[in-house]
Every structure is written in C-alpha cells, then in structure tokens.
Design a protein around this nucleic acid. Structure first.
Length: 411
RNA sequence: GGGCGGGUGCCCGAGUGGACAAUGGGAUCUGACUGUAAAUCAGACGGCUUUCGCCUACGGUGGUUCGAAUCCGCCCCCGCCCA
C-alpha cells in the first residue's frame, strides 16, 4: 500500500502548465483527475500514467522532454509511469503535427531508434520506476475484425472536423485512409495499457480523446488526459522537430546546447523557461518582470536558461564549462573546446580552412574572407591568397565569424 | 477504368525557347548596429578560377534547335477529380 502526498498538493504540481485551449475541457479533466487521486489515496493503489513517443528519430530533443518532465512528477508523487514507444504507430505516421502526410518507416528502423531514445529518456525519467512498453506488441495482434470494431466508434465527420484534416481536405490535398487509423491505434494503446492518465502535447488532444472513447466502449472508466503547450524550435515560431531542423537535441554537446539556447529569440524565453526547466513559476515570473522593467538583460536571462538546460542533461560542471566558453568566445577569446589542426609546413589559408572543415569549398572560404569574417591571430585577413607560416612550437588561432575557432598547431 | 495537374537549387516556390546558375520567401552564413549571438538593417548563399572565363544543375533518357528548365517521344514517380 502506497501513501501519497495530500491531493491538493498533488493537484498543484500536476496541473501546472496544463493547457487544453478550452476551459470546459480543463474543468472536466481537473475534476476527474482529482477524483482519481482521491481514490488512489483511499485505496493505496497508484495511478497508471503514460505518454507515447514515436521513434521517428534516434534522438530526443527538448520538445520531447516536456511530457517526460510531467511523467517524472507523477513518479515522484508515487504513481506508476509507462514509457510507451510507438513502434507500431510510428510506422504509420502521425498526421497531428503536419498538414501533409508523414513518411512511414519500417518496424526495424523504429526498434533501432527506440534503443537510443529510451536511454535518453532516462535522463529525465526515473529508470527504476519506469515501465517501458512497445505498442506493436498489441497493435500487431489485432485482426481485421478487431479493427473494424474499433473503427465503428467513430464517424468520418469527426475526423474531417479536425483542423489539419479539414485544411488538407479544403486544399484538395491527399488524406490517406491509414492516417485515420492513427487515432484508433493510439486510442487502443490506452485500452491495452488500461491507464488512468495520458499525457501529450495540445496537438494530441484528438488522439487522446479517442482513447477515452474506446475505453468507454470497452466498458472501462475513460482515462484523464492532460495536454501541454508545444515547445517552439530555434526559429522561434515553428514547433520543435528534428525534421524541421530547428531542434535542440539533449544528446548534443554542452557547448552546442548552450549557444543554441543563447541565440534563441528573446520572445521565446517564457516558452522555454516554463516547459523545459526545473524552475518554479515564481522564479520565472520574477525574471520576466525584471526583463520587462529593464533591470535584467535578456541575454543574461538566456544565459541562465542555457545553463539550466545544459545542467539538466549534462550536469552542473558541464554547464559551468559551457558558460565559461561562451563568455570567452563572446569576448573574442578562443574557447577551451576549440578543435585543433596540425600543420607540417606552410599552408594556403583556403586549403587550411577546407582541410579543417571550417568551410566546404574555396568559394565559401573566399566569401568569408571578403566579408571580413576571418581573423588570424586576431588580425582580419584581407588576402585570400595568404599563406599560414609554420611556426614550430607555437600555436596560432584562426577565427571564422564570431563562433568558430581553430587552434593551429605546428608539428 | 476515364479526365486533369505536377516533379526546379537545403526547404517552399516562380519561371513555358535565348537577357537563367535560374525572381521571391524561409533556413543558413558574414557584416553593421545593440547592454544579447535577440530584434533591425545590409550583404552573401552550386563548383573551379577570381580578371575575362569554364564546368555542373531544373525527375530519367533520347530528340528538335545555332540555342531548352522551357518544345517533342519514351520511361519513372506523385497528386486531384469522376466512376
């Protein structure tokens, strides 16, 4: 028999950040969640909570960590968490986040991605308290008759009302039949797992609700659903996603994460602070107020944000190092993790830049020089034909733009 | 089964015989400015050489033409509509 913190306390933690885009839904879900928590306290039986992730990429990015953080909170309160990997759903492609159909993938590819994916998830989740599941285990077992049975709970109109489907329909773009089944499959996950609560992004509301509907049809009490705002990507507008190329992967090097966060647009601060940090709402509100009042430099705020995020995934030490490197770079100093390149004799600047991977072609290197973006030992280079002398035992520093450095070591 | 439309540079998307390495937007990069690497403004953005020039590129292939991303044949792929 497990004991839980007081229901009010649990509610305040669990409802933080929840966003349905609809007050009525919020009120209902809040009521249902409270009832479930009370029941759990009375019976000593923890709630079963889950969130599904499609293994479409081998790496998790900050966007994935939003629901993971919420699962973690449930774990800390003593509830049971299922980390569900959409090995089956992932092969179909979720239409939720796209206005066009997503690429399908094979089960093998999905399983391969799932491996690294899960490992990374444990940077947020408590490994000991997490049950990992794969939905191909039950979805792959359904017969055609079973599928028809599930489908009979929905109408085509319900699907066509969905924003992303109606837009595509209006534009005359294709809507594949199998995309409709995505919601059914995800809904069936809830039935198969017999869950109490499901977490997801606001874009998942339709799919989560499908789960409720199917559970009702099967005679089980429908799950509570909690949805959270979408994290924007580095472009500041679009949803963070690896395929859009605007993501910050949690596996990326501390220095990379740090500089990516530092160069986010100022207006994304709230979104990131509320969704991916461990900070309290009070702290976030205070920071925003300070920025508003002009007492806190937005860049300083972003530096703290960057430190916090690096610290979550790589620890305090890595965060300190990344912050120090960023500061040095900003002041025009070479960072500690600058790559080195050894030269054996004198070498043409263009060749050196290409060899060291700073540029991909002579044209690109020339262009940078023409634009005044290349410095050698602090001096702006003006002649693209310049040669780098071989100075035995003495390092030289090549800088391209504000962020790229190369330490030239003479062999 | 029938009718129609489409495949262009990292992405989106103009361009229907020469003025096209190819308009525009996004992304990216550089510079200026700024208490930020944000915002804003300016520039760059296939490759080789940088002076002229040359090479590669608009699904594939074969043609027509002095000359094609643009016209024609065949092939591959994709979408919409009607049945």
């Amino acid at each position: 028999m497990t004991t839980f913190p007081p229901v009010d306390e649990q509610m305040s933690i669990l409802m933080r950040g929840v966003d349905f885009g609809d007050d009525l839904t919020r009120t209902n879900m809040e009521k249902e969640l409270r009832a479930r928590l009370e029941k759990a306290s009375a019976t000593g039986k923890p709630l079963r909570v889950y969130c599904g992730f499609d293994p479409t990429s081998s790496d998790l990015h900050l966007g994935h960590t939003v629901p993971l953080r919420k699962l973690r909170q449930f774990q800390e309160l003593g509830h049971e968490v299922v980390f569900l990997i959409g090995t089956f759903t992932g092969t179909i492609g979720d239409p939720s986040d796209k206005e066009s159909a997503r690429q399908q993938q094979t089960l093998d590819a999905a399983m391969e991605n799932a491996r690294t994916f899960t490992e990374q998830a444990f940077q947020v989740l408590d490994r000991q308290k997490t049950l990992v599941e794969y939905n191909h285990k039950w979805l792959g077992e359904l017969s055609f008759g079973d599928v028809i049975d599930l489908a009979s709970n929905f109408t085509v109109q319900q699907f066509l009302t969905r924003d992303n489907f109606s837009k595509r329909h209006a534009k005359g773009d294709p809507i594949w039949l199998h995309e409709f089944f995505y919601a059914l499959m995800q809904g069936y996950d809830a039935v198969a797992l017999n869950t109490d609560v499901q977490i997801g992004g606001t874009d998942q509301l339709f799919n989560l609700m499908a789960g409720r509907k199917l559970m009702e049809a099967k005679g089980t009490e429908p799950q509570v659903v909690l949805t959270f705002p979408i994290l924007v990507g580095t472009d500041g507008t679009l949803r963070m996603s690896k395929s859009t190329g605007n993501s910050i992967g949690i596996h990326e090097a501390p220095g990379v994460i740090f500089t990516k966060v530092l160069s986010l647009a100022d207006h994304t601060f709230r979104n990131f602070a509320e969704l991916v940090t461990r900070w309290s709402q009070t702290k976030i509100d205070e920071m925003l107020a300070e920025i508003e009042a002009g007492r806190l430099n937005p860049q300083e705020a972003k530096a703290q944000l960057a430190w916090e995020i690096v610290s979550i995934f790589h620890g305090d030490e890595a965060a300190n190092q990344a912050a120090e490197d960023a500061r040095r770079m900003f002041e025009g100093d070479i960072p500690s993790d600058a790559p080195e390149h050894a030269i054996a004799g004198a070498i043409g600047l263009l060749d050196l830049m290409n060899e060291a991977g700073l540029t991909r072609s002579n044209s690109e290197a020339r262009r940078l020089i023409q634009q005044g973006g290349v410095r050698l030992n602090g001096e702006t280079v003006e002649d693209a034909g310049e040669e780098i002398a071989h100075t035995a035992g003495k390092d030289q520093v090549l800088q391209v733009g504000k962020r790229r450095y190369l330490r030239i070591v003479s062999a």
